[in-house]
Design a protein around this nucleic acid. Structure first.
Lengths: 326, 326
DNA sequence: ATTCATATGTCAAACGTTTATCATATTTAT
DNA sequence: ATAAATATGATAAACGTTTGACATATGAAT
């Protein structure tokens, strides 16, 4: 059997009370006793049972992290960073891939509650999840409105869209389209779309909006892109994420449209993996380090003090990363 | 306050015992009572406290999943699949990125113990972690020997290396190098290396082994690759993972070595993201769906019965995915 | 009329910890 | 010498749930 508090106490020749005091650093303790107890804990490979501790009212040190799917490199990097930051603060991450399935997201929320997580970082994008409000749990949202008292951290999507359009235009493009995600109300891609539109309006250019639903498989997206590129003759395309940009560039090559000479492309996200392994792509970089740091820091503030005053929205600046595609 | 068993009981007008019996489907219960109880649970948004349940001896339904870093698309996809499979079986994943840091891995193991996880899937690659043996916890390992009683699931690295060399050779290459990871004993890349070497030996070709340490940044790897490509004149390179292959191809382009005409390249891993977004890459595909299914299934067998008989090693077949780079 | 399966209740112990209360030493400072 | 600070222990309640023991009631089958 796993060693318990009592076993440690016996081995160390002290009372359970004392062992517990050592572990929780509570009350008066001599160095000698601490040493004895730690030695015993070590010898037995003792690990306090977190279930029992948390029943007693201690934090579980568990944080639920909900995103649609870490296979998307953007979420992969974000979750990886969040995990690293939380680990450093002695928290553990329960990973929840919602797969853009509202029911799965709901189920996960319930599970997280049942597991007494201390808080949640949510970047999954299903609207109408009133569940988020009903649990009085610390929650911070990434890039999505969830409810009035849940702070949102996001990058400056509007400015990103604006910058992207500007980059295409300044690189010489005149006929500039956007391949955006599905434009649900409250979705972050809306900001990108608006920024794009506003820039074009300023320059008296016409905007061309194509929706490329998130959930399409790459093969279907490829078909869709191919059909668009064949019938319209854009010389600039702003893709609302880097993967779509990669696809667009690859389709263009297939159609003998040379990038960037005939067609300029700008992506969005700028993850490490894209910057490292596809440095040719011009893209709008979201500040992932700052985003994750802020998400974690805000959440831990709320965990420490459920009523602490936080802003409703934190918008972090984006920047253009020049490759050669625009 | 969160509703408890007692609150549900009162609302439903039954005893706590009955509510608990309903939840655990234990003993005789009328449909009417069940309905009343479920209705009350629903009305109160009741969620049983898993901490209390697991203290009582129930499973936590928590599984620790340790890999070096989900930013690597291979681990990202693997973890994503594992998460999905476990979720379907009502398990939750505690995500552990060991970052190739033995101390972090050790700390994580302790944390997982403290959190009473029901089992662990480990794909982190730090040797000499005797900790794995000392906890009597169900563990399944991916692609790495951990200890005698821990089953290993892996793809057929040897055959993968063999296939890769063969593909390069059959595409016309004669001077075939391998860019492998660090060749620690027991590391999976060893198999790939051996397969590569054996194929070349069969064909009376000379093997050229270059180690490209995992932990190098892409920029440093790029430098390294550049220097290798400049001084040697290989016409075929087997990279022991797809990201290195991407880097190699991109360096080749910079040096005006055209792929595949002057240099053929084969990668390893064949994740969805690579196949979808870089279909030009010829690579050895690891069967991620089967790997994750097997990892989860073996683990759950061990969770159900700690002493169930499992093989020491499960080797799954790989296959060559033809792109245009070889 | 008796037995048996079904259905529910009361009560209490148990899981492993934390923590408050009280008690009792031993040291240190005044 | 006395008070205060330091150090430890014994005991027990509490966290929320499960489960076994036991009691009791209803309805159905014999």
């Amino acid at each position: 059997m796993k060693p318990k508090l009592n076993d440690v106490a016996q081995l160390a020749g002290v009372s359970v009370t004392t062992v517990s005091r050592v572990i929780n650093n509570h009350g008066y303790l001599s160095q000698q006793t601490k040493d004895k107890v730690f030695a015993a804990m070590h010898e037995l490979h003792y690990q306090p049972n977190n279930m029992a501790r948390s029943l007693q009212g201690k934090n579980t040190q568990l944080i639920g992290v909900i995103f649609s799917d870490i296979r998307n490199p953007f979420f992969g990097e974000l979750v990886s960073r969040i995990e690293k930051l939380l680990f450093a603060k002695n928290y553990k991450v329960i990973l929840c891939n919602s797969a853009d399935d509202p029911q799965k997201e709901r189920d996960y929320l319930q599970m997280l509650m049942a597991n007494q997580v201390d808080g949640i970082i949510a970047g999954a994008h299903n609207l109408g999840i009133e569940e988020y409000q009903q649990y009085g749990l610390p929650i911070i949202s990434f890039d999505r409105y969830l409810s009035d008292n849940i702070p949102i951290v996001s990058s400056d999507n509007y400015h990103g869209g604006y910058l992207a359009a500007q980059a295409l235009h300044q690189a010489g493009a005149k006929d500039i389209a956007i391949f955006s995600g599905k434009n649900q109300p409250g979705s972050p891609t809306n900001g990108r779309l608006e920024g794009y539109k506003d820039y074009l309006k300023e320059k008296n250019l016409i905007s061309h909006v194509h929706e490329l639903p998130f959930e399409l498989s790459p093969a279907l997206k490829t078909m869709e892109i191919k059909s668009i590129l064949k019938q319209a003759h854009y010389d600039g395309i702003f893709c609302s994420d880097d993967l779509n940009a990669m696809l667009t560039i690859s389709v263009a090559r297939q159609l003998n449209i040379s990038v960037p000479e005939d067609l300029k492309v700008v992506g969005y996200d700028g993850t490490e993996i894209i910057r490292n392994y596809s440095p040719e792509l011009t893209t709008i970089e979201q500040p992932l380090a700052d985003i994750s740091t802020l998400l974690v820091s805000l959440l831990l503030q709320r965990v420490a003090d459920a009523n602490c005053d936080l802003e409703k929205e934190y918008v972090l600046p984006v920047k253009l990363v020049k490759g050669i595609t625009a």
